[in-house]
Amino acid sequence: MLKYVVALISVSVALWSGCEWLNLWFWELAEVSQDSGRLLRQEELSLYNGREDSRGLYLAILGQVFDVEKGRKHYGPGGGYRFFTGRDASRAFVTGDFTEAGLTDDVSDLSPSQIVALYDWLAFYQKDYTHVGRLIGRFYSESGKPTDVLQQVEASLAQGLKLKAQAEKENELYPACNSEWSSDRGGRVWCSTKSGGVHRDWAGVPRMLFSPGSGQTRCVCVRLDDPTHSNNPNLQEYKDCPPQAESCLLSQD
């Protein structure tokens, strides 16, 4: 896994050289892989569920096992996250399904963006809790080697990070509009120097941006003095709204 993570670090540096947090995130995961610790079977991990006569508080995520004893108020009996201990419930970290069926390590149908979120959780545990070892099973073999399943998950991670970078780049180019709606006045969209969470020195004007991939449109702010926008066939003006207006009323139809 370390070799694969280092490869992903190289990809991250090449594609997103300005994202220091991303590089740090990968290096933290690489440290987890280097300090592999011991190998546990599910039967042994289940003994660390915090219940009476248990050996402590362990949980696993993507086959990596962590000691969460210092968070006992959260992971111990009666804690809000007690159902995570003694098992690998990777799927539930991003789905929020805390039923027995949902508390599983099967992440085969998660989207690339969900896999990115799952690795964010893995980085959180690596930073805040003690790494104990690896869980033999879906993600690691009897000898502690990454399984084909884990390699597929890592491939999905790489795809998810690429999509995330593309979305962030598009958001910088086309920040989202501010919006409001009321039953009596209808809707309104407008642009400001802080709309879409992107702080900038220009406000822009509202336009509808069509996404071919999803078949949907969203309101974005564009600069009138940027000629690249005039060549984008996916940008459309709002009906009955002046082209240079920073605010547009939306029809209730």
Rank of each mutant, 00 (worst) to 15 (best):
Y4T: 13
V5F: 12
S10P: 00
A14Y: 05
W16E: 00
W16G: 00
S17I: 04
G18R: 08
G18L: 03
L24D: 12
L24P: 01
F26A: 00
E31N: 12
S33P: 04
R38N: 02
R38D: 01
L40H: 07
Q42R: 15
E44Y: 12
E44Q: 15
L45K: 01
N49T: 04
S54G: 07
R55A: 10
R55H: 07
L57W: 04
L57Y: 02
I61T: 13
I61M: 04
G63T: 07
G63M: 06
V65T: 02
F66S: 01
K73T: 15
G76V: 14
G78P: 08
G79P: 11
G79A: 07
F84Q: 09
G86D: 13
S90Y: 00
S90Q: 10
A92C: 08
A92V: 13
V94E: 07
G96H: 07
L103D: 14
T104W: 09
D105K: 00
D105I: 02
D106G: 12
S111W: 12
P112S: 13
P112W: 12
S113M: 01
Q114V: 06
I115S: 08
Y119F: 02
W121Y: 13
Y125G: 00
Y125R: 02
Y125M: 10
K127R: 02
D128N: 04
Y129D: 10
G137P: 06
Y140G: 09
Y140A: 05
S141R: 05
S141F: 00
P146W: 05
V149M: 02
Q152A: 10
S156C: 05
L157Q: 14
Q159N: 09
A165F: 14
A167M: 14
A167H: 15
A167G: 08
L173H: 03
C177G: 08
N178V: 03
G186Y: 01
G186W: 01
G186P: 11
G186M: 04
W190L: 04
C191N: 06
S192Q: 07
T193E: 05
S195I: 01
H199Y: 03
G213C: 08
G215L: 14
R218G: 06
V222P: 03
R223K: 11
L224P: 12
D225R: 05
D226N: 15
N232H: 08
N234V: 06
E237Q: 11
E237H: 06
Y238V: 05
A245Q: 06
A245G: 03
S247N: 09
S247G: 09
L249A: 08
L249R: 08
Q252I: 01
Q252N: 09
D253P: 00
